[in-house]
Write a protein that binds this DNA or RNA. Structure first.
Lengths: 228, 228
DNA sequence: CGCACGATTCGGCGCGTACCGAAGTGTCAC
DNA sequence: GTGACACTTCGGTACGCGCCGAATCGTGCG
């Protein structure tokens, strides 16, 4: 559209602190203003100002509870926008400085949630497995096959909504597309609900549980090394 | 990724002048620095600085010819990034102020190129026609059907590349997805090459030619009002 | 009730950067 | 060669905005 409108939108993410907020919120959960401030390393007063801008612009939705202000991404479109932008970043930067940081980023690369679906090598592996078993095709687009639609219906019915059933999300660690959209969210919720995939610590990272390895092998009819 | 990296990328588009440059360049052609400066309403000196940043960041590629500096988007990914961002803008703003502006924006809404594929209501109409004739499916993703792949091969073979054959692009006038990716570029080039679709003036706007109406009706086996 | 705490508002500081005019460099035309 | 032109570099101005400390408001706990 008009240049100023585009610039205003971009400007929301063009600040280190606001960008840090958005990346933290990519886990799909609600954070308090204070948590975000601490995470980004700024004073609470600074965080307040940023949150006002992000909420006013519609990127974040807020919910007040007592003396806390909870804030989350306004929806999957916003999450998709941010991941999309992140996917266009310079190839493969920033080696980890400390051992702690290295293990944390390795865990993130292995598996994580991207708002409400799986990403990282786990997300890509699930997507690959779906393709190998004929439930997903990426030859001429990115779509579930009829068999894939039936499989998903049996697994965890997706309620109809305006949200696209399937969309691809480009991963910034793997540089490959993986399953997103309502179907991606459904699969992720199912795997976590079954206890086959679990969150690690408090962040976005997830891992395959001991019970999950065999279960995933059976679910996808393939013997990928899920436990990696 | 890291917040500062994301912020740096966003900052490139977070300026009215640079945003205007990028939107102008969305037509996929090469512009001179002077043309862009005039379009954005800034002095040549200002444009030089902005172009340096955009080129250094890899969003634009430059080509020097004599005393001219030609500049274009660095590739389809960049075009996609910008259109993607534009698609997330507030719904439907800015009514046109003048008659001239109104006719220009109406022409853009009717049909335009989005870097290298068709967009606007024409782009959506073509996509709809492909779906109606069983060449494209968006039930469980966004993909060409086998029939669609055969049709495209007969029409204008797409050379293999790392670029995805099919991808969807969300339109900011129509708010609907339309065909993009290598297939979208191929269809657009074919229609323009046949003289069925032609550029209007010097901008991004395109229209269906008189010869194009019947031709499109035959091509898509449907009687949509192509000439609209 | 009174204290602790999260969040907010306000005022002021300082950096980053967008902008331009003027002067300089290279290229093309005559 | 000389002039016109596209673009660039440089210097300087001005404005926006991110940041914080301190004071305030409101809520929850003891």
């Amino acid at each position: 559209m008009t240049a100023p409108a585009l610039a205003r939108l971009a400007a929301l993410l063009a600040d280190d602190t606001r960008a840090a907020f958005c990346l933290a919120l990519l886990d799909g959960r609600a954070w308090t203003a204070g948590e975000l401030a601490a995470r980004a390393g700024v004073a609470p007063a600074t965080a307040t100002g940023h949150l006002h801008k992000l909420v006013a612009a519609g990127l974040l939705s807020e919910q007040r509870q007592g003396r806390h202000r909870y804030v989350r991404l306004a929806g999957p479109q916003v999450a998709h926008l941010i991941e999309d932008l992140a996917a266009h970043l310079p190839p493969a930067p920033a080696p980890a400085r400390t051992l702690r940081a290295a293990t944390a980023s390795a865990a993130l690369a292995r598996g994580r949630t991207c708002y409400d679906h799986l990403a990282g090598s786990l997300g890509v592996a699930v997507t690959d497995a779906l393709e190998r078993t004929g439930r997903l095709s990426r030859d001429a687009g990115f779509a579930l096959t009829p068999a894939g639609v039936r499989w998903l219906d049996g697994l965890a019915p997706v309620r109809a909504s305006r949200r696209p059933l399937v969309r691809s999300c480009l991963d910034w660690t793997e540089r490959r597309e993986h399953l997103a959209g309502a179907a991606g969210a459904s699969v992720c919720a199912y795997l976590i609900g079954q206890g086959w995939v679990a969150r690690v610590g408090t962040g976005r990272a997830v891992r395959v549980t001991p019970a999950g390895g065999p279960a995933l092998t059976e679910l996808f009819g393939t013997d990928a090394a899920w436990s990696a």
